[in-house]
Simulated assay, not measured.
Amino acid sequence: MLPMTVIRSSLVAGFALLLSACNSDPATETGRTAPAAPAVRSAAPKPAASSGKKRLLFFGNSLTAGYGVEPEQAFPALVGQKIDSLGLNYEVINAGLSGETTAGGRSRVGWVLRQPVDVFVLELGGNDGLRGIPLTDTRRNLQAIIDTVRRRSPDAQIVLAGMQIPPNLGQTYATDFKALYQEIAEKNQLVLIPFLLEGVGGSRRLNQADGIHPTPAGHRIVARTVWRTLQPLLEVPATE
């Protein structure tokens, strides 16, 4: 497993803004809400008839939801497009919710998992870090989400997306927050994406005018980061 990338000091302000946006009330966000691309659908209110395909579900906050970009430009949709281009037997579901915390995710994960999944990508915790929520609470909520997935879909592969925060609340808290993802992944034998925003966080060019959310180009980089982890799980041969 590759070590987590160390955040350069120049990125601190960008990450602070990023996490602030993820922490905003979803009712106040004004991202576009055009229909999702065919490769990705949102979690439906009622279970749909089985398509015969395996199910890959992204469960997270505004990063997963694709705030501020067209749905087909968000990284879950880009992963779905890659899957479709390779003719893989998977449907991709975007269950991202802007403003989500680990506590909120714990409350709604059972609703999302009314149908079993084969791969579950868990991207939560950044909002907890910004709010200074005790790491014991974040750890407990993430563990509860993982336990629910294991209970509802015992054979699912769970991928945990790591996040980092600036040291606004103290270097010790930021360091322990970063380590929390590695600890949870090791404890539960999960596949870990060391840092979801590798190469994107803090880049003015790769974030929207608000300096917070990735642009379409930023989402393409995030999608490549995610795909590197998903590729072996979906048994896709590596290519140059």
Rank of each mutant, 00 (worst) to 15 (best):
L2T: 13
P3I: 06
V6H: 00
V6P: 00
V6G: 00
A21R: 13
T30G: 02
A36D: 15
P38R: 12
A43M: 13
P45K: 09
A48G: 02
A48W: 01
R55I: 15
L57S: 04
F59P: 01
G60P: 01
S62V: 05
S62Q: 04
A65T: 11
A65Q: 15
G68P: 04
E70P: 00
Q73F: 02
F75W: 15
P76V: 05
P76L: 08
L78Y: 09
I83W: 11
S85Q: 15
S85P: 08
L86V: 07
L86W: 12
L88C: 00
N94Y: 06
G96V: 06
G99M: 09
T101R: 10
V117W: 03
V117F: 04
V117H: 02
D118L: 03
D118I: 05
V119A: 03
V119Q: 01
F120A: 01
V121F: 14
V121N: 12
L122P: 02
L124D: 10
G125R: 02
D128W: 03
L130V: 14
R131M: 13
L135T: 04
R152F: 07
D155F: 11
L160K: 11
N168I: 08
L169Y: 10
Q182L: 11
I184H: 02
I184T: 07
E186S: 06
N188S: 08
N188G: 03
L192R: 12
I193G: 01
P194F: 10
V200L: 14
R204H: 04
T215D: 04
G218T: 10
G218C: 09
G218E: 05
R220C: 00
A223N: 01
R224I: 06
W227S: 13
W227A: 13
T229K: 07
L230A: 09
P232R: 11
E235D: 15
A238Y: 09
T239V: 15
